[in-house]
Design a protein around this nucleic acid. Sequence first.
DNA 1: CAAAACAGTAAGTAACACTTACTCAAAAAA
DNA 2: TTTTTTGAGTAAGTGTTACTTACTGTTTTG
Lengths: 197, 197
Amino acid sequence: MKHKGKTNPPGRIKIMKSFSLLMSQKDFHSITTSEIAKNAKVTEGLIYKYFKDKKDLLYQVLNKHFVTFQTKIESRIAKENSCIKQLEIIIFSSLESYADNRIFSRILLLEVRNSLGFFDSGAYEMIQKYSRTILEIIKKGIMKKELRSDIDPLILRKVILGAIEHACLGEIIFSRQLDIDKVSTGITNIIFNGAKA
Amino acid sequence: MKHKGKTNPPGRIKIMKSFSLLMSQKDFHSITTSEIAKNAKVTEGLIYKYFKDKKDLLYQVLNKHFVTFQTKIESRIAKENSCIKQLEIIIFSSLESYADNRIFSRILLLEVRNSLGFFDSGAYEMIQKYSRTILEIIKKGIMKKELRSDIDPLILRKVILGAIEHACLGEIIFSRQLDIDKVSTGITNIIFNGAKA
DNA sequence: CAAAACAGTAAGTAACACTTACTCAAAAAA
DNA sequence: TTTTTTGAGTAAGTGTTACTTACTGTTTTG
């Protein structure tokens, strides 16, 4: 008998919590199903009642984190109407979110991208939404002549997203601290004003 | 009896070739040791004579690719003496290399970063070297007043590396084609001239 | 020419992700 | 009220996996 997802029983919640905790201590692959079950005080078989497999459990935990992030960002953007300011907010908020929530960041930047299954998950849909938001702001910025008309919106998005992700990568991998303000203004300075003298 | 790395016997070569081939077909985790051995026509145990574990095999294959990449880039840079041009060459060459060698790119961008062991490997030393080269060019560029003096060299490097990596990521994951010239000039245009109108 | 070192094999083993077949209790239907 | 269905949870597996151990022959070398 499989679970249809209509209820949210205690066992399911315990499994997700147990897994979240373990993810803060070690990487995905070194977490075992028996460990998850033992920690959650349920049997191993129950995991497979609520989750298709171990990866599905990962995606669902990630999705939960992502929903809160997305709503936070959207409410912040709404308060500004300059496109450049909105992009600055996105850069700052993303860096802040990565720095504040390292487990979630590690999952997103290092653990899920290598399996194609992720790109069919609900968590990936959230990323696409976030990514689309950025693209729309860029396009509006070009229309409003805040941004140069000869830049390719898709490439600008790549530069922004790449800069954000790479800025956090080292700090996440080696558990270093990140100076959000400095990095955030540094990135926006380069991207909007250019590095050339 | 363990292997000291002083010779390069046929079995070792066959294992690396078999693994490389499999990496072009599926992701690291779904490749099994028995599959590698069967494909290489050796026994499974032999893998562990030449490689510490499955991941060590991955790192060594990656390292081999990386050495050729690094020497290629360095010879190209030597021909230019404007710092901005040198950075443009690095951006272009990196994109080209990622596009031309997708197996290697997938390993680097998606498969190795999530295990700390990688950062002790020889392959990682090569990345550091490449990364240091970029930083030195930036610093020289600031000194020669080609680049603005108020930009942080470390952050500019992050933006450059992030842009390069993110530009390839989607195309590698979904096996799409990459227009190197367009993306390369697009990135340099934004980073050096700025996106602001 | 003996001894060490090397290339390679055969046969394991513990641990792992995942499955099957089952109980028990509560809610729905009769 | 009794019967049936459904959901939460368990117990005991299974095949496969990465990795190990103990062993052959074959070169190389002191």
